[in-house]
Amino acid sequence: MEIPQQSLISVTRVSQALDLLTRLGETATVMAGGTWVMREARERTFISLAEIPDLTDITLDDQVLVVGAMATHQDICNAVIGAPDLAALATAAGKSATPAIRRMATLGGNLCTRDFHSADLAPALLALNAKVTLETSSGRETLSLEDYLNTPVDRPHILHHVTVPRTSRRSAHVRLMQRQAGDYPLAVVSLSAAIHPDGTLHDLRIAVGSVEERARRWHALEALCDDQKMTSDSIRAHAAARASQDFVGRDAVDGQGWYRLRVLPALVAQAVSDISLTAQGA
């Protein structure tokens, strides 16, 4: 394929995007919603994914949720709102940023912008055990979101879609900002759990965002909660004991590391009580 002498190239197939990425290297960047690259990377060649069919598709059935990389926060929120197991995702997609940005920023942009440390969708999808499907020049691969976030994929790739298994679990997403809106979150906790008929939570999956450079699961805390009857107070105590061992708080202009760690136990407790509330409601 001949490389068009243009600074914004709209491709219609994923393979074209990969081809261009390989050839142009550092001088090019993928553009999804544009809300990051328009602020950070204006001198590079934009490879726009907007004209690729199917990438905005979202399918939701009893078994699985599949979200295309180009689905916006708003699209995702509209699709999953009301699904009890996906509440964390609905909150992450529906409450982050601002209404106009939610109509523009995409799932792919949120998960693939490695310089962005406060992504909301990342911890929500970690708590929901999501898998990502990538397209690379050597073909399609599917891996857990956790692996994708932990180990940078350095080869040119396009995140194609994300798959979330449907369950009878409950989930919640708690984000802390200094103002009531308009900030990137300083710390995020997403949590999903199985709820036994007696109302107790089990098999917790806890993900923490914005505290470090990348969202990640809080396995140590999950282990402490394993097979225990967890209340929001008991989990808070565990979280308080573990937070500074398990995380190194990120110092940045919007907030200091100590503060991000200090609030984590309360956010975890909040997530647990949110889940318990929805469980009672359901």
């Binding site: 200094q178 103002r179 009531q180 809106a181 308009g182 900030d183 990137y184 202009v253 919007d254």
Partner: peptide, 27 residues
């Protein structure tokens, strides 16, 4: 909310709306 910090270079850390927090409708 509105905080300006001055770094070792003598410059403000808050260079725009992403870091300088003016009240929104919810605030």
């Amino acid at each position: 909310h509105e905080e300006i910090t001055i770094n070792a270079e003598g410059a403000f850390d808050q260079t725009g709306f992403s870091s300088y927090r003016i009240p929104t409708a919810l605030d």
